[in-house]
Amino acid sequence: MHALVVDDSRAMRRIVGGILESVGFETLQAEHGQDALDVLAEAGAKGITPSLACIDWNMPVMNGLEFVMAVRTRPELRTMTLMMVTTESEHSQIVRALAAGAHEYLIKPFTADAMMDKLRLLGLMPEVVG
């Protein structure tokens, strides 16, 4: 099972990617929304669609909200679960992201256990989905 980590911080990509890999995901990484779309196109050409994308909000070039909206216009990506992983913790921002098509929301700082709880909630823990 593949996961895409979209964050402009390499440190945060390492942390999020490390948590996901510890439970069995193979990870792809991108440093902003446009880069993520490019990574998804490249993966799609190989027949890979990630089951999950963990998306930061504040990024250069294309932010996380714009990325979510772009993904939602692409039917070939409809099976990918979108989880915002961000410091944008105001209720209004969470509502905006969910309305745009995000499925879940994890606020920084977060623990590995908190991320795994979200994965269980989404039915995306690898041992759960087999």
Binding site: D8, S9, R10, A11, N58, T87, E88, S89, E90, S92
Partner: peptide, 27 residues
């Protein structure tokens, strides 16, 4: 630069959440 910048981003985002009305965070 990446590490200290991301820590600033996270702390800044949490501080922003205490603003009384809509606000945005720079990179």
């Amino acid at each position: 630069a990446d590490a200290i910048g991301e820590l600033a981003n996270i702390v800044g985002g949490n501080v922003k959440s205490l603003a009384p009305d809509a606000a945005s965070l720079t990179l």
